[in-house]
Amino acid sequence: MNLHILNSATKEQATHSFMQCCTSSAWVEAMVAGRPYADRDSVIKQASTVWENLAEVDYLEAFEGHPQIGNVDTLRAKYANTKELASGEQSAVNDASEQVLINLAKGNANYLAKFGFIFIVCATGKSAAEMLALLDARLPNDKAIELANAAEEQRKIFNLRLEKL
């Protein structure tokens, strides 16, 4: 898809395209309403501006659109929403040792229990061991800090997906 097609797409088509990048309905609605975009940079700027002005509930909605890293069942169920642009983002998990996967699953469960949302990390280019180290480093945080960390990781993810779009 190019910028011209995105700008001239129907509301439904544009909604579908932006939903591939981020599953926050408030973010998607604002991105659709922000059309037409003059250039790539204006899309990226709008995406970040909208994201910065959302509420916690909107962030949590976006996080729910992600599978848990290392959880194959969740990957299958949740990847359906974003699979067009998200393919390959967690491919490094496929090469992980069994112990790293077990530790990721345990860490994700601990993270979810502590914060009430799944561990979000921009997984592109990271091995499972690297993601496990990041998860372990972030687990001691308080919820406010971790919400900010997760929101920043979500921004990285939607920016990568916007580039693919």
Rank of each mutant, 00 (worst) to 15 (best):
M1A: 01
M1C: 04
L3P: 06
L3H: 03
I5A: 10
L6F: 00
L6C: 03
N7W: 00
N7P: 09
N7C: 03
N7I: 08
S8K: 11
S8D: 07
S8F: 02
S8G: 05
T10R: 07
E12T: 15
A14L: 09
A14M: 05
A14W: 00
A14R: 10
T15A: 09
T15E: 08
T15Q: 10
H16S: 11
H16E: 08
S17H: 13
S17C: 11
F18C: 10
Q20H: 07
C21R: 08
T23V: 15
S24V: 12
S25Q: 15
A26Q: 12
W27T: 12
V32Q: 02
A33P: 07
G34V: 10
G34S: 07
R35G: 01
R35F: 00
P36Q: 01
Y37A: 03
D41Y: 00
V43A: 00
Q46S: 12
A47L: 06
S48C: 11
T49F: 06
T49M: 07
V50K: 07
V50L: 02
W51D: 07
N53L: 11
N53K: 15
L54Q: 11
A55T: 09
A55P: 02
E56A: 10
E56H: 05
D58C: 08
E61C: 06
A62Q: 05
A62V: 10
A62S: 06
G65F: 02
G65C: 05
G65I: 14
P67F: 00
G70A: 04
G70N: 03
N71K: 11
V72E: 12
D73C: 06
T74P: 00
A77C: 08
K78E: 00
N81Q: 14
T82I: 15
T82E: 06
T82Q: 11
T82L: 08
K83C: 12
K83T: 13
E84W: 08
L85P: 09
L85C: 06
G88K: 10
G88L: 06
G88E: 01
G88S: 03
E89G: 04
S91G: 05
S91R: 13
A92N: 05
S97T: 15
E98P: 09
E98N: 12
Q99A: 15
L101Q: 11
L101G: 03
I102R: 15
I102T: 15
K106M: 14
K106P: 12
K106N: 12
N108A: 04
A109G: 14
A109P: 14
Y111H: 09
L112P: 04
L112H: 05
K114L: 09
F115I: 12
F115C: 13
F117M: 12
I118Q: 05
I118D: 03
F119L: 10
I120A: 03
I120Q: 05
V121M: 01
C122V: 03
G125D: 00
G125A: 02
K126W: 00
S127E: 03
A129R: 11
A129I: 13
E130A: 03
M131A: 06
L134Y: 04
L134K: 14
L135T: 06
D136W: 02
D136R: 10
A137L: 13
A137F: 04
R138M: 10
P140I: 07
P140H: 01
P140C: 02
N141T: 07
D142K: 10
D142A: 13
K143Q: 12
A144V: 15
L147Y: 02
Q154A: 08
K156P: 03
K156S: 10
I157L: 07
I157D: 04
F158H: 08
N159C: 11
R161D: 00
K164N: 08
L165I: 14
